[in-house]
Design a protein around this nucleic acid. Structure first.
Lengths: 208, 208, 208, 208
DNA sequence: AATGAATGAGGTTTCATTCAT
DNA sequence: TATGAATGAAACCTCATTCAT
């Protein structure tokens, strides 16, 4: 027995749980397995998280924060609208390849229903939607994009493509589908994918 | 008791099960609830489907066939590439609004892992990917689209946007996100959404 | 549909049920399987037998009557005590080899408990025990057997050996054990087995 | 709740299970009843035994070891062939009277079929068959038994009689049959039974 | 404070029996 | 009268959660 879980151990629990939840979802995951693989007792997990769902939530929050920060960084590094898109895509690809389980957590919340869906969506999508809309509005007022384009709509299309890119690298089904569309060697063509997407978006926005 | 489940009752079971599975997934769904809501006994469900997973599969197949046929029709009705895209989008919107649970079934398979993911993806995505690639290749050889555009890549982007549209109408989380991006009245703006998407795609393809 | 089960069909049901019960016992057997393999409906089985146990009972009765008659015949054909034993043994071997499932039915009743055990034992063992005791008593009063031998006790030993012989030919476990004791080719040594048993019994009785 | 099942409790589960399985067999026994009667939860039984069959196996192993040891002791205590037989019979009677449920477990394996029968028989009967054959062979080479007697055959007859003795004391059906042959007061005549059996065997072997 | 074995509600599945046709 | 699909009680087993140590 031990006095208190170290920072490290707590992080380890989250990592292991993220893997288990990422692979099997809330219903399919098994708390006892998470405990065993984390080298802690079930009891201690229930000291930190009052039930399975809360542990899931904690994993989700951590995953989303991590993803959010990564994309945020990409945005801050960029100098103009085009590089913003480009950096976001690069960041999305890199993150999804290296943190599959975190992407999978993100994916699992897309399965929730009713009120929960509302809560999660509001919490998770509000920031990025606002950011993307602003970026596009600015680009538009700078005369960079086509006059007909509704910023909200384009933001939606853009985030759709980004989200699908995340899932295509992180989730097995989407990854397989990715290969069907783009060839088995797709994971070695990150740059090509990014370039194609950027030029598609640029043309879609009628940027010059 | 009844002599035999009528065609109607059998369909009803599938409908009820599609709803239950659509909302809760394979793990979260409860066969007893499905039985009760279908007004049949558990036993009879196990006469028709040898286990929970097979019932899930049956619901999935039915949903995917229905969706597939609907999109197929849309394609056959179209006369050129632009109307093809337009019809597909219209069909996707209409289907997703009217058959939420079937779209949700489709969504659940995106959560599977490993071998299962491979099987499902191959089975489900192969046809449409082939169709889209061919359509675009033809448009390209007709000189209708930008020379840089890789047909496979565009097919992928196009299907991504279509898939997200499906989920945006059919799944609660995606729907909520849809509203965040495009306003609470989004479901009354189907035409606007279609037009915006078509023109975005056209520009993205550099079509004139 | 058909007017009434023919004699043949009824017999067929019993044969199939005897096989199923013989292999799996009352608890392990499945009425629906019996119905299917008998080419009749479950319903008709429940017309003839009010429940699973009654069908089992019917199979048992038939098996035991058949066995009883066979042994009875053997006894009637015999002229003296030694040939009686010899004929009984021959009959037991032949019957068990040719009617495994009926022997298995007999074996299953040895698993019952409490009152049921009392009923069955009284019903089944009373006749043969009486017969064997009388035969031995007569042999004893004829001065053929050892004075110390209690006829009831010998009858018991004799029937024990006969019963084990039945099971050794009819039941898988006992058959395997039989082979362990007497070699893999035991089923080709029926005569040897009979002779050895007869001479063992004769010496055991101190017959000359 | 308790920190961990005590040795005693674990033994108690086996005892209760041995009783339940002994009376009803693998198919007829009910894990929930075993749990209730053992004063533990179902869950804990499944912690110790991964399924019903494994619990059955554990009961069987324990029963057979116990029986085996008891008979082994009897053999080691004996000084010559006659006392060996006598001790074995005494031990069998005593054991079967005091450990009915363990004898019943032994009896249940005689109901298995096919491959399982082969496995069990080989595992269980090999040792004793070898022992008995050796004892008799030795007695024969010492000139103590009749020249015609095949040691393997006699070992088989001897074990048959011993096995039936076990079942006659331990299993309800056999016990009832025992009473039919030897009188209702048979359980007070252990010594008489043993003596009769020994002298029958001795004469059967033609021992002097 | 951590442990981890025990708990037992709840879910899946089977199959003896029923009864509408 | 026979049919055989439907019924639903009951059994096995799992795993989120508890709590004695």
């Amino acid at each position: 027995m031990q006095r208190k879980l170290t920072e490290e151990q707590q992080k380890h629990i989250i990592d292991v749980a993220t893997k288990e939840f990422g692979e099997k979802g809330l219903d399919g995951a098994n708390i006892n397995i998470i405990a065993k693989q984390s080298d802690v007792s079930v009891g201690v997990i229930y000291k930190y998280y009052s039930n399975k769902e809360e542990l899931f939530s904690a994993c989700l929050s951590k995953s989303l924060s991590h993803l959010g920060e990564t994309l945020q960084e990409a945005v801050s590094d960029a100098v103009d609208f085009e590089t913003t898109m480009s950096y976001l895509i690069s960041a999305a690809i890199a993150f999804s390849k290296n943190h599959k389980n975190e992407i999978r957590m993100y994916h699992w919340i897309t399965t929730v229903s009713d009120e929960k869906a509302k809560e999660y969506a509001t919490e998770i999508e509000a920031t990025s939607s606002k950011l993307y809309k602003e970026l596009i509005s600015k680009a538009k007022s700078d005369g960079l994009v086509h006059g007909d384009m509704d910023p909200g709509v384009f933001a939606f299309f853009f985030d759709n493509l980004l989200m699908m890119l995340h899932f295509s690298y992180g989730c097995d089904y989407y990854n397989q589908r990715f290969r069907i569309y783009m060839g088995e060697d797709v994971e070695e063509k990150d740059d090509y994918v990014r370039k194609q997407l950027v030029s598609f978006l640029k043309r879609g926005l009628d940027m010059r």
